[in-house]
Nucleic acid binder design. Structure first.
Length: 282
DNA sequence: CTAGGTTTTCCTGATT
DNA sequence: TAATCAGGAAAACCTA
């Protein structure tokens, strides 16, 4: 949902609904996940064992850092000086104040915080193991607008959702297209083809690197190969990425039907096993 | 720890 | 000639 550089994190597109469900799974249960939490003595999450209102200033800071580490959020966008506050003050921040202070990560963090506040451990632990059921997903998408769940967060849950799971998103009135056309969130895809797809669907992030050749047929062209490789490399934190290597990975998709061969240089086509790129289609 | 999936890296050769 | 394309092979990484 909120993505990640690695497929296992909160933001992973491949997880879709999972993240919301098992808090312990999201945050993990080992002490390694809580670098500086001396209060973390058992397997339960400290963050959900104590209500945010009772967090100390130190806890608030730790929580922010934990989220950044865990979800690969850019801590630089957070104004930590604004978070030198107690848990009570944190809870009393308006969404607007929170977003101002936490920058681009604000929506994720605010959503996570609201979930802890609203549901505490029960919201997560009462749910079965790890997966979000259709019912749960339905519940999520039906949360009222003032529930504290930013719409863009909900879209995260939709990204890359297998067709069979898409119904739960319609309930919330969020179309697949919306899921892939808003901001950076959907550019957090863990797989290369999803990254490419989301870039195509996000003109504002695209920068002319990719463009549709035939939108209806899913045919697109790599306009700036080096820039694409660089961007992918940044995503994977690999400054040695080249278009040569990226294209090798793309060619592997021919085998799995994610992409289909197009006999033109720098031109690719989404295959039958690629989803989420169609217009007006879920 | 293991198996399997997805890249990443490297390489040879063909094509544009 | 440089940039791409095609794949094979193997290593690296990650997740379940």
């Amino acid at each position: 949902m909120l993505d990640s550089v690695t497929p296992s994190t909160f933001l992973s597109n491949t997880m879709v609904c999972d993240p919301l469900m098992s808090w312990t799974e999201i945050f993990g249960t080992t002490e390694d996940d809580y670098p500086t939490c001396d209060h973390q003595t058992d397997s339960d999450s400290f963050w959900t064992s104590i209500h945010p209102e009772h967090w100390s200033k130190h806890n608030v800071c730790e929580w922010l850092q934990f989220c950044c580490d865990q979800y690969k959020l850019d801590a630089n966008c957070i104004s930590f000086s604004h978070f030198n506050i107690s848990g009570l003050q944190l809870c009393n921040m308006t969404q607007e104040e929170f977003l101002d202070a936490a920058g681009i990560c604000g929506e994720y963090l605010y959503f996570i915080l609201q979930n802890i506040r609203m549901h505490g451990t029960s919201f997560f632990t009462d749910l079965e193991e790890t997966k979000l059921s259709n019912k749960d997903c339905d519940l999520l998408t039906k949360l009222p607008p003032d529930s504290g769940v930013p719409s863009s967060l909900l879209t995260l849950f939709c990204s890359s959702v297998p067709v069979r799971d898409k119904a739960c998103m319609r309930a919330g009135g969020i179309s697949s297209q919306e899921c892939h056309s808003h901001g950076r969130t959907n550019l957090q895809s863990s797989h290369l083809w999803e990254f490419v797809r989301d870039l195509l669907l996000s003109p504002e992030e695209n920068g002319g690197i990719l463009e549709w050749e035939d939108r209806g047929q899913g045919i697109f062209r790599v306009v700036k190969s080096e820039a694409l490789a660089k961007m992918w490399g940044q995503r994977k934190k690999n400054d040695r990425m080249t278009y040569e290597k990226l294209s090798r990975a793309l060619r592997y998709y021919y085998k799995t039907g994610i992409l289909e061969r197009v006999d033109r240089r720098l031109v690719y086509k989404f295959g039958k096993n690629a989803h989420g790129w169609q217009e007006n289609k879920i």
